[in-house]
């Protein structure tokens, strides 16, 4: 077992445990932190899978930005009574949910296992290794090289890229629109009007 594989196992175990803890935790703040931990292990795994760019993006965008957003929401809107809704969940939902999840996992693993068996011979005939992946004469053609990714992204995948940009813009507008509280704005405006009216009355009284 070489060092890379050892590192992978460590990361995988930590990641799985943190995922399980995230689900089982009763405190949403803890859940968020467990999920951050899970994402950080994923960063390592991406490095091991020769996807450095992917790892960096995961680190910055997911473990950084998105999870901070989650943390904010959880912390801002957690009232002291918030813990009370963390009572035990419906039993039947637990039971059936777990049952189905296990079934799904079983099915996925069985199919993974069988397909792995079918392809075993093919794999042994010299499927790529990390050494081979990095063996290109032009470094841009190495797996996960940011330059190569960029070229591919802005040529072949230009349209999905643009559409994703549009989607982000729409999400931005939508988020602002949904989260804005129109009633409170109106109330503020009204209060402002009242203030002005009172001032005017006061001025008149003074005069």
């Amino acid at each position: 077992m070489d060092g890379q594989l050892l590192a992978w196992w460590v990361l995988a175990i930590v990641g799985s445990l943190s995922a399980v803890m995230m689900v089982l935790s009763r405190n949403p703040v803890h859940s968020v932190l467990y999920l951050v931990a899970n994402f950080l292990t994923l960063v390592g795994i991406y490095f091991l899978l020769s996807a450095p760019m992917m790892a960096v993006v995961q680190f910055v965008v997911y473990a950084g930005a998105i999870m901070i957003l989650f943390l904010f929401v959880v912390m801002f809107f957690m009232s002291p009574e918030a813990r009370r809704w963390l009572r035990p969940e419906i039993k039947s939902q637990w039971v059936f949910g777990t049952l189905l999840t296990v079934m799904m996992l079983t099915v996925v693993y069985i199919s993974l296992f069988t397909s792995g068996r079918v392809n075993q011979g093919e794999l042994e005939m010299g499927r790529p290794t990390i050494a081979m992946a990095g063996a290109a004469e032009n470094p841009r053609e190495e797996l996960g090289h940011p330059a190569g990714l960029g070229v591919r992204m802005f040529s072949y995948h230009a349209l999905p890229f643009e559409i994703a940009g549009l989607l982000l813009l729409a999400a931005l507008l939508g988020a602002v629109l949904v989260a804005r509280d129109e009633r409170s704005e109106g109330r503020q405006h009204l209060a402002h009007e009242f203030e002005k009216a009172e001032e005017a009355v006061a001025e008149e009284v003074q005069a």
Binding site: S16, M22, I45, L105
Partner: peptide, 18 residues
């Protein structure tokens, strides 16, 4: 890694449901 992905997916599904 693929096995791990399956496991994580299952854990996520379970969480959504419970």
């Amino acid at each position: 890694s693929v096995w791990l992905a399956g496991l994580m997916f299952a854990i996520g599904t379970l969480g959504v449901m419970i």
